[in-house]
Design a protein around this nucleic acid. Structure first.
Lengths: 154, 154
DNA sequence: TATTGTTATACTCTATAACTATA
DNA sequence: TATAGTTATAGAGTATAACAATA
């Protein structure tokens, strides 16, 4: 892991030991997720799109007319936290919001042309980012990993 | 995924589609990590220990005398962000901090008896939490998953 | 009564820049 | 010059509670 000097004895210590953490899936998930996140940000530089807003655009494109509560539920984002995100995408004219046909409380969300264009641009960048992050994994390992992760979130 | 009414047409829609996100490892990592995080918090209720402070206690126990920079590097926590965390553990008397022998700039960190006790208590809870979260995975699947995740962070 | 969208608020994690004292 | 610890600050994700309008 990391070469360190032992601050107490001054003896050279070859590595930081971490038997406990190394065997915790939760810790490994958190570390791996953060590595991806850092590279995701680099890949998306200049787009002002973050993981949450990308997920929103992708989900709205595939489910035109979806309302905010359903969108939040599908993405694991609470209604309250979705509000400023929706506002941001509206202000950037990446999505459109119309009154829902059968429910005066709700809105139907859809992508604007600009939103569709930006989504396509971001999707291309993200595919390259994933390819870069998964370079060490074979095709079957990638499939395995996706399957195992899906099992954890279900 | 989630049953929603289509807000535009009012037609029943069986599921939220998400072809794109479902095939992104970065997204799956983020979702799974968050599922674990939520359950981790529940499992640690009453201890005032969070993921970062648990990782610190575990790493200090296995590397007595380690300094803050090395600790941060081993955990992926920047020096600047480590400071308030170290202070918190010092104030709770869970760790001790002594001047390093060979470097007047550095401190040697170690666990107090209280810290060792709390670490043991938390470790037990976390093992139960992991067991709970991994219930759907076989032993070999768990090993596979840990191995694949390690490949991503290296 | 329950649900949709909203406001307000707080906590945690992470990132960057710049400082001091030592090495 | 580089490193250890520190301060200050900001961005982003997530959590809870409560409200008005509508179902």
């Amino acid at each position: 892991m990391n070469q360190i000097p032992d601050a107490e004895t001054g003896n050279p210590v070859s590595e930081v030991r971490n038997e406990l953490l190394e065997h915790l899936v939760g810790y490994a998930l958190s570390r791996a997720s953060n590595v991806f996140l850092t590279d995701f940000r680099r890949a998306m530089e200049g787009t002002s799109i973050r993981p949450a807003t990308f997920a929103m655009l992708a989900t709205i494109e595939e489910n035109p007319g979806i309302n905010q509560t359903s969108l939040g539920r599908a993405l694991g984002i609470q209604r309250a936290n979705l509000v400023p995100l929706v506002n941001e995408l509206l202000e950037r004219a990446l999505i459109e919001r119309h009154p829902a046909a059968n429910d005066k409380r709700a809105f139907a969300l859809g992508l604007s042309d600009a939103g569709r264009e930006l989504l396509a641009e971001c999707t291309g960048r993200i595919r390259a980012h994933e390819e870069h992050m998964l370079a060490r994994l074979s095709v079957s390992e990638r499939t395995q990993l996706l399957g195992l992760l899906a099992k954890l979130s279900r």
